[in-house]
Computed example of a mutant assay.
Amino acid sequence: MDLLSDVVAVTRTGRPRSAHVRWHAPWGQEFAAVPGSAGFQVILQGSCWLSSPHTEPVRLNAGDVVFLPRGSGHVLADSPESLVTAPACEPGDHEPYDAYASDSVDRSGDGGPVTVVLCGAYQLDPSRTHPLLLTLPDLIHLPERSDRHPELRAAVALLAAELENPRLGTDAVVPALLDTLLLYILRIWFKAQPDRGDVTGWAAALNDPSVTATLHAIHRDPSAPWTVATLAAEAGLSRAPFARRFALLIGQPPLGYLTWWRMTTAARLLRTSDAPLRAVAAQVGYTSEFAFAHAFKRAHGTAPGKYRRTG
């Protein structure tokens, strides 16, 4: 798998939830802060305003996409002055999230202008959050551009159609489309970040061909006997300049990131498979089960067997 796909696969847990909601003005809906989750709002028809305790109100128009990677609390309303008229939504507890893969929710006001929103949430595992996600702002707003991001618009259209008109296979289609939507949002945001020599961090790393090549190599084959020299060869750089550049952008040395990723991958394998410990160790680059167990306990504070049993 490539880096971005791995980030989503490792960090997301459970089933993402979404709903197709129609509001009639006047209306206001609070979305509660949900630590350990990420939320999104896509405006399919009409317009509305998004407000949160830490930002000025933002006007959203049809086609706009909003992503909240830390599940920040916020309010959607037909105008900044509208009052919240419904209980705060929390994934799995209240509408509209309970409408996942079911009929659309229709919230009636006084028959005013209609706003249709595709909303939802992803449950994340805080213990396996990739540092790439930690660099994202609290709110990502991707305004509609008719001449840009056709793949994002296509994913939104397909997801909206499945939620508005569930059919055979919808329960399988919707989670796949939600993952696709998340990947497109992340891809677009990182690509849009400034490509300057003084910029560091994951946004700069994903726009650096040398570092990106190394990251893809690690994620493609974490079991390989990587060294700084072999990773530098993947980057097309000599050893010392590569190590400096990698540490500058990623925030840790190449072998430090390699070990972190191996232990993160091992944790996922322990929780999602019945593979014996020796097989898990081999998949993340350890020929010795003892050495693997020692490294895993150092990273996660518990032995791999106990980690699996208490998962």
Rank of each mutant, 00 (worst) to 15 (best):
T200H: 15
T135W: 07
P143R: 12
V156R: 03
R153V: 04
A157P: 00
E162V: 04
H149T: 09
L132S: 01
F190G: 03
P194M: 14
A161I: 00
L136H: 07
R148A: 07
L183D: 00
D171L: 02
P131G: 11
I188V: 14
L163K: 03
L178A: 04
L168Q: 06
W189F: 12
S146I: 05
I140V: 09
P194T: 12
R153C: 03
A160K: 04
Q123N: 12
S146P: 05
K191V: 03
L177P: 00
E162R: 11
P175S: 04
D138M: 10
L182W: 00
G197M: 15
T129G: 09
L133M: 13
L178F: 02
P166V: 01
E151F: 06
A157T: 02
W202V: 13
A154F: 07
A205Y: 09
F190Q: 05
L168C: 03
A161N: 05
L182E: 04
D138K: 12
L133I: 10
H141N: 06
R196E: 15
N165D: 06
T170G: 01
L132D: 02
R128F: 08
L152Y: 00
W189C: 00
A204Q: 10
V199I: 15
D125H: 14
P137S: 00
L124D: 11
P194R: 14
R145N: 11
W189K: 01
L142G: 02
L136F: 10
P137R: 00
D138H: 13
K191L: 11
R145Y: 05
Q123V: 07
R187Y: 05
A155I: 14
L186Q: 07
A205K: 11
R148W: 02
Y184T: 02
R153H: 12
